[in-house]
Amino acid sequence: MGTATVGVVNSHGNVNGVLTIDSAIVQAIVAHARRDHPDEACGVVAGPIGSDVPARHIPMDNAARSMTFYEFDSMEHLRVWREMDDRDEEPVVIYHSHTATEAFPSRTDISFAGEPNAHYLLVSTREPDSEEIRSFRIVDGVVTEEEVNIVDATVKA
């Protein structure tokens, strides 16, 4: 009888079509989205380059302070991207909320999406007591939805 070799089971990186993310980070993102509601909230989850593991939650200011638009403040953007560079991290997840519509990328989201390696996570806060959380790849204007796999205690938020 043959024995299958089991691969590394504690790694959840580089799985096609799945965003695996710690529940504590998801809770922090949802809390940020709720706090800023009815304005859109936005931010990043950084992780080691190439790991595909979102490990460090960085809430960003929505410089537009709008219910229907978000934009990183350009100086905060530079500072956070440099910090990631210094730490050998990359933006694994870029998230924002839609506060009156579904958690699906708008044409505006697609037009601006400039990080082809990132998971674009959208949270809808239109329902007061539940959130819709969905994740997408957006590359060259093409949107591909992926599964969101929420796991416990891989990192501290």
Binding site: E40, C42, M60, A64, S66, M67, T68, F69, Y70, E71, F72, S74, H77, L78, W81, R82, I94, H96, H98, T99, A100, T101, P105, S106, R107, T108, D109, I110, S111, F112, A113, G114, E115
Partner: peptide, 23 residues
């Protein structure tokens, strides 16, 4: 010089966003 893709978007329709931003 550092070039970064702007991180922006939102539920606002593209035409309205484009007008707002002068894209």
């Amino acid at each position: 010089i550092t070039i970064l893709p702007a991180v922006a978007g939102g539920a606002l329709g593209f035409a309205a966003a484009a007008a707002l931003l002068g894209v």
